[in-house]
């Protein structure tokens, strides 16, 4: 059984879509021009992230800023509201995705997690639906 699941995992990894190419030049404007300070916890964040080329949320509190519209990196949104992590989703290849929701306009976006994201906050987000005490009754585990 474990062998079979591993081969399925490898197959999913082999035909995975490559990360989307971004037309925005991140190195323009000199050294560390795209480092940012988090809107949620005021942490100074560097733009190079382990495991991903698009740093789009704070690794400490997972907050983001509503700057992109449809394409990641297009910087076309005029909202600039704070986006907070709403829930956790999993791609078919096993990659975790954070669903962000804009606090000012309600827009949703899905972002990959980075290697240095706060694991405790990620797991708290993942178990959030299961914290509800009425859930056992709803799935008929108890009468």
């Amino acid at each position: 059984m474990p062998r079979r699941s591993r081969s399925a995992h490898e197959r999913a990894r082999a035909n995975r879509r490559p990360q989307r190419h971004k037309d925005v030049l991140h190195r323009q404007g000199g050294h560390r021009a795209n480092d940012f300070r988090c809107v949620g916890c005021r942490l100074d964040v560097s733009s190079d992230a382990p495991g991903t080329t698009h740093r789009n949320h704070c690794p400490n509190c997972l907050a983001s800023l509503h700057v992109d519209r449809r394409i990641p990196g297009d910087r076309a949104a005029s909202c600039r509201g704070r986006m907070e992590a709403l829930s956790m989703s999993v791609r078919p290849d096993g990659e975790w995705m954070i669903i962000h929701q804009c606090r000012s306009c309600g827009e949703l976006s899905a972002n990959r997690i980075a290697g240095d994201d706060n694991a405790l906050i990620l797991v708290r987000l993942a178990v959030k639906p299961l914290r509800d005490p009425g859930i056992a009754r709803r799935v008929f585990l108890v009468p």
């Binding site: 709403l86 829930s87 956790m88 669903i99 929701q101 949703l108 899905a110 959030k128 639906p129 509800d132």
Partner: peptide
């Protein structure tokens, strides 16, 4: 459907893609 989100009231929302 890709994810379940929980509101402050405890209600579940289903997120579609």
């Amino acid at each position: 459907p890709i994810a379940i989100a929980v509101l402050r009231t405890g209600d579940w929302m289903v997120i579609h893609r």
